[in-house]
Simulated assay, not measured.
Amino acid sequence: MSILVTGANGTIGSLIVQRLADAGAEVKALVRQQGKRSFPAGVTEVVGDLTDVPSMRAALSSVRTLFLLNAVTPDELTQGLIALNLAREAGIERIVYLSVIHADKYTNVPHFTSKHTVERMIESLDIPATILRPAYFMQNEQMVQQVIQNHGVYPMPIGSAGVAMVDTRDIADVAVAELLRRDRAPAPLARTTLELVGTDALTGASAAQIWSSALGREVTYGGDDVAAFEAQMASWGPAWLAYDMRLMMGGIQKFGMHGAQDAVDRLQAILGRPLRTYAEFVAEAISAA
């Protein structure tokens, strides 16, 4: 019996596939297009789509454990609900679902509410699952790194409420730990929820200061204008996604992204090491540029 990883071509999914393979697990990697990425030896590439029921039924056969990741798309909710229903139909009782932190607070943000609805299905049907709720990804900053370095402006309008950004590598490592824990258990385990956060509550100003220190020159915060942020995103991507991200930034400015008091300690106990810091990420990103 194997572990099926959805979103296997993506940033987090590909990390999870690699780490599971390194741990000796039997892994199936669900992809929409075959041959797009080179997977580790022994990993079985499975072509399917989360809204294509026949392909998902085939992908879920001979699977004991499921990692469910839905990309931010207009039909994200449909994808998540279909995948979970088909997993139940296949008798899969070991699931790790990648949600998002504060999905219950950001009720006007489409991809947050989609994930919250999937969480409600997991909870109402008492599905044996780990729900992972990550905060804003540090790796999102790579989209604006050139602006930061070339123009001395930190442009993400994250405001001053504080965002405990988390490194995607830490997300993947926690996900793998939970997948292996569930996969290797003699019986399905009780449902649990983990908030995936970093150690620092960053503001726009403090993030800019970290970049300033790492670059050795001034970087200023670009401000809280979410309309300008939407316009910039819409210049290179779909308008619906730009608006979704604008709404998310509005939520970040209002609520922030903070884990529970013990969240960092719980994660570091699972990992057996400290979480990566934002300053470490920034230094690494500059070095790799």
Rank of each mutant, 00 (worst) to 15 (best):
L84K: 03
R32K: 03
R94W: 15
Q33M: 06
L66F: 12
A41D: 12
R94T: 15
L60A: 03
D75C: 00
K105I: 11
S114T: 04
E119C: 13
N85G: 15
P54L: 10
A59F: 08
K36C: 02
A58P: 05
E119N: 13
N108D: 12
R32Y: 04
A103L: 04
L98Q: 10
L81E: 13
I101N: 10
Q79D: 03
I92M: 12
V43W: 00
L84N: 03
P110D: 06
I82T: 14
T117G: 01
L68D: 01
Y97W: 09
F67T: 06
P40C: 02
S99M: 08
A83M: 09
E45K: 00
Y106K: 01
H111F: 12
N85K: 15
K36P: 02
T78W: 00
L50Q: 12
H116D: 14
A83G: 08
E45I: 07
L50V: 02
K115S: 07
V53Y: 01
A83Y: 06
Y97G: 04
A90N: 08
T107N: 12
Y106W: 10
G35L: 00
T117S: 14
V46W: 00
L98T: 04
A71F: 05
M56V: 10
H102F: 11
N108C: 00
R88P: 10
S55R: 01
E76N: 02
Q34L: 11
S38C: 02
H116Q: 15
T78I: 10
D75L: 03
S114I: 01
L66I: 14
R64W: 11
P54R: 11
H111I: 02
G42T: 08
H111C: 05
Q34F: 05
A83E: 08
E119F: 12
E45P: 10
V63S: 08
F39M: 08
F112T: 03
K105P: 06
V46N: 01
G42F: 07
R88E: 15
E119M: 14
G35Q: 01
Q79F: 01
V46A: 02
Q34A: 15
Q34G: 06
L60R: 00
T65H: 13
H111P: 05
